[in-house]
Design a protein around this nucleic acid. Structure first.
Length: 861
RNA sequence: GCAAGCGUGGCGGAACUGGCAGACGCACUGGACUCAAAAUCCAGCGGGCUCACCCCCGUGCGGGUUCGACUCCCGCCGCUUGCACCA
């Protein structure tokens, strides 16, 4: 007798939809539970076998929580803007909207085929006009904000004090732009001439592998000032239940480091025109090593390079700058072995000891970090050491290990490698500053104090985090609601002017000028702004795909609201308890998506638009499902598994159960087509067990002792299910289901109440078969709306336990005793055990260890 | 290079707070049913040995702590992921 999934599964899917079984009821008094999947990008190839893994996990949790009395929000939607769709549109020359609709239809059908409990009436699509409007609305808010460090939060730009010297509108705009959370900058981007577009850093590899050339080119870009939130993004990590690795990666990404800025004045050497020579400011985390700074290095792009370079070094410097510009970030790091650089001819003065030190440029110094310039301390920094050795620059030891002898550091021999650990200062004294004998931590403090007192520098916290490049030269994205006037002024569209829709275009190809296809639309570039009467043109960049996914979890709370992005009541109800209760998705989003979303959320929090500082309370990453060969699934390897095929062969419940049974949710594990047959057999056994139970006789035929053991099995199964779902340990819960079935199948009479409770345990995992059998057992309503069974701990207690008896920690026998027997009795019993007596004979017991209900261990001499 | 995580049968994996290693499934072997096969059911299944018993060995390798270590500590080796000149 087999589980006829071909008829059962579609029938229940249809009935659940008709009856609105999974409709979220906003008007109950039940406590809310919000469980979220990372919504998919609807690609042309349809659902991947990896998608159902995370989705089944949340489906199990949501069904379990619903049965446990919670009002559950478990929504699904589509992150539908994106490059692949746009490229497909170019190939087929039809509108990306049509391709998006087509792909979403496929995805929806496939998701429904798996029997997930999504409330489809809440489905969202980031490309919907009703959604884009609010994405633009939030962008508008960001644009109209500045971050006030005094209160450590965002405030309206209108509240930014304008300095008196800004008198013209243009000057005010310029000043505000320096503080807005969304601003325009000219920064180098990855430009691909053949594609006619800019690529994100993470896209560069993909295209260069295909033979395209990508170069660095400065272009006008929109940026979001996420760096203003660096410290808050860092602090927020302390209070959330996320995988340690992800917290770690975010901390690294933000990259806080404490140090100092130090200003080095330049020796007025060869500068004939003008008397003022600017100084070079560096950032260092080791201000305590200032006496060891024997040269300065500027990034080749540093703005002072051309000013300070002396005439006789002009040529080499220019050549070096040019060479560096052609190198990609990757090439620069690949060449890390030999550190190249050239001398500028200029000298600076080390403020600590007044020594004259040369100024070099080298591409091992990054323009975008700190001040783009460093003080090189070769004795105490590996990179500076390598560079100094390669270029014959002096090396001065100023820190020695704490436990080294007194004369360490006085050697005239140059060290063989950099000592970059903390230690004790030496050779660090001048009329200005004395650090000798101080431990690193105190030397830092003393140096910073001296820097601040003299005005030469200051203590400083530096972050690796960079501002977020927010514009894309593409058609298929949210238009930025910004318009530019001929006089250089600009404005953001007002709330009542949103949404700004994408125009129809002839071709979806980028304009080829570094602008998107929007630049080819005349009415986009030339029109009269009705609000100002001025000639205006729209921004032709669109937003990146991240924009829509930054706030979608908020929209699910109130998906059809056309007055607000989400009503405060809905937001507070679903997210008020520290945010999303459980968020499941791939670890590939550990940094970008999850950092960007936190940034937007914190900004909204500053305006009181959301009620918690963090959006996600508990985060979980599901692992990858690998091909049968243990390698990552890919079309080129021919090891992909298509969900359609497996569902057709074994049914949705089998696929769901199998993906959960493969191993721990977080682990990467290979697919095995024989394995799913095992699960399929298990479902057939469930079908047979329940069918036998329905056909069977009265429960009272079961004798009392047997019944007690069965009760223990059942209640243990309920306990295990409850606990394992909480821990997302679905594989072990399923193992227990198998044990249950193996135990009950041979029984001549199957107790009906036990079988019903078992079906309820299995229901979140295998919703179709359990619903069908539930009804065959004449139970009322949907099993998925029934109350999850609870276990009685008193029934779990075993009356007798098996005790392991060891002699010298080796197992020599086992005894069965009443549970809870006291230690002395146990030891006595154990000692007399047949298998133990020979081991104790003629020996004296030195020690007896008794662990109640577990073991007895005799230590003999 | 740096950081995090992981190494358990032929395979995927279990094992609570340090207390019977290998639950559950797959594969495999034998048996029942069958004319036969498939399906199903039953039994066995880490290695060694003088193979029912008994004993010995066994959770990547080497040490340590402990009556007792897959579990805790130290050092190595290997794999995975992330970051990668961030001063």
């Amino acid at each position: 007798m087999k589980y006829p999934f071909e008829t059962v599964e579609p029938a229940w899917q249809q009935r659940w939809e008709e009856e609105g079984t999974y409709r979220v009821d906003p008007g109950t008094s039940k406590p809310p539970y919000y469980v979220l999947d990372m919504f998919p990008y609807p690609s042309g190839s349809g659902l991947h076998i990896g998608h159902p893994e995370g989705y089944t996990a949340t489906d199990i949790v949501s069904r379990f929580k619903r049965m446990s009395g919670f009002n559950v929000l478990h929504p699904m939607g589509f992150d539908a803007f994106g490059l692949p769709t746009e490229r497909q549109a170019m190939v087929e020359n039809i509108h990306p909207r049509l391709i998006t609709e087509r792909n979403i239809a496929t995805f929806t059908k496939q998701l429904k085929m798996l029997g997930f409990d999504y409330d489809w009436s809440r489905c969202i699509n980031t490309t919907d006009v009703g959604y884009v409007r609010w994405t633009q609305w939030i962008f508008r808010l960001i644009y109209n904000s500045w971050f006030d460090p005094a209160v450590n939060k965002a405030r309206p730009i209108s509240e930014l004090p304008i300095p008196p010297e800004c008198t013209t509108e243009l000057a005010i705009q310029q000043y505000q732009d320096e503080h807005r959370l969304a601003y325009i900058a000219n920064i180098p981007v990855n430009w691909c001439e053949a594609l006619g577009t800019v690529l994100a850093n993470e896209e560069v590899d993909e295209w260069t592998e295909k033979g395209y050339t990508v170069e660095r080119r400065p272009m006008r870009q929109w940026m979001l000032r996420i760096t203003a939130y660096a410290q808050r993004l860092l602090d927020g990590l302390d209070a959330i239940d996320w995988p340690a690795s992800t917290l770690d990666m975010q901390r690294h990404w933000i990259g806080r480091s404490e140090g100092a800025r130090v200003s080095f004045s330049l020796e007025n050497d060869d500068v004939s025109n003008g008397t003022h020579t600017p100084s070079v400011t560096v950032f260092t985390t080791r201000p305590d090593t200032i006496f060891g700074a024997t040269y300065l290095v500027l990034a080749p792009e540093h703005e002072l390079v051309s000013t300070i370079t002396t005439a006789d070094h002009q040529q080499q410097v220019a050549a070096y700058q040019q060479a560096a510009a052609l190198k990609s970030d990757l090439e620069r790091t690949e060449l890390s072995k030999d550190k190249s650089g050239v001398f500028t001819g200029a000298y600076a003065i080390n403020p600590a000891n007044g020594k004259r030190i040369p100024v070099w440029i080298a591409d091992y110094v990054l323009a975008h970090y700190g001040t783009g310039a460093i003080m090189a301390v070769p004795a105490h920094d590996e990179r500076d050491f390598d560079f100094a050795v390669a270029n014959n620059l002096p090396i001065a030891v100023v820190v020695k290990p704490v436990d080294s002898s007194d004369d360490a550091g006085s050697s005239t021999e140059p060290p063989s490698k950099a000592f970059s650990d903390a230690g004790v200062n030496c050779n660090s004294a001048s009329a200005q500053l004395v650090l000798d004998g101080l431990q690193t931590i105190e030397a830092k403090r003393a140096t910073i104090a001296w820097l601040e007192q003299t005005g030469i520098g200051e203590g400083r916290v530096q972050y690796k985090l960079r501002d977020w490049l927010f514009s894309r030269q593409r058609y298929w994205g949210e238009p930025m609601p910004i318009l530019f006037f001929d006089d250089g002024l600009r404005r953001v569209l007002d709330e009542d002017e949103l949404p700004l829709l994408l125009p129809e275009v002839e071709s979806f190809q980028p304009a080829g000028t570094g602008e998107s296809a929007l630049a080819t639309v005349p009415e986009w570039i030339h029109f009269v702004d009705p609000k100002t009467g001025k000639h205006a043109r729209f921004e032709t960049n669109t937003m990146p795909q991240w924009a829509g996914s930054c706030w979608y979890y908020l929209r699910y709370c109130d998906p059809h609201n056309d007055q607000q992005f989400c009503s405060p009541q809905a937001e507070k109800y679903w997210l008020g308890n520290n945010g999303i209760d459980l968020y499941v998705g791939g670890a590939e989003h550990a940094v970008l998506h999850l950092l960007y979303a936190r940034f937007w959320h914190q900004m909204l929090f500053d305006y009181g638009l959301v009620s918690t500082p963090e959006p996600v309370k508990r985060l979980f990453h599901q692992g990858l499902i690998l091909g049968e060969d243990g390698r990552k699934m890919s079309k080129s390897l021919g090891n992909t598994i298509n969900p359609n095929d497996v569902v057709a062969l074994y049914g949705a419940d089998a696929v769901r159960l199998y993906e959960m049974f493969l191993g721990p949710l977080e682990a990467s594990k290979p697919w095995n087509s024989r394995g799913i047959e095992g699960i399929s057999r298990f479902l057939d056994r469930v079908w047979r067990l329940v069918s036998d139970c329905i056909a069977g006789s009265d429960d009272t035929a079961i004798e009392e002792q047997t019944m007690r053991e069965l009760e223990r099995t059942l209640h243990y199964t309920i306990k295990k299910t409850t606990e394992d779902i909480d821990n997302l340990s679905f594989n072990t819960a399923i193992a227990q289901f198998m044990i249950f079935v193996n135990t009950y199948t041979p029984l001549p009479v199957k107790p009906k109440s036990h079988i019903v409770a078992f079906l309820q345990c299995l229901a979140p995992f295998a919703p179709h078969i359990t619903e069908e059998l539930w009804h065959r057992m004449n139970m009322q309503g949907s099993i998925h709306l029934s109350a999850f069974p609870t276990y009685d701990p008193s029934l779990l207690v075993e009356s007798t336990v098996e005790i392991v008896v060891q002699v010298n920690s080796k197992i020599r026998g086992k005894i069965t005793v009443a549970a809870g027997s006291n230690g002395d009795q146990l030891a006595e019993l154990a000692m007399k055990h047949d298998a133990i007596v020979p081991h104790l004979e003629g020996k004296s017991i030195k020690k007896t260890i008794v662990v109640p209900d577990k073991l007895v261990n005799f230590i003999v001499a």
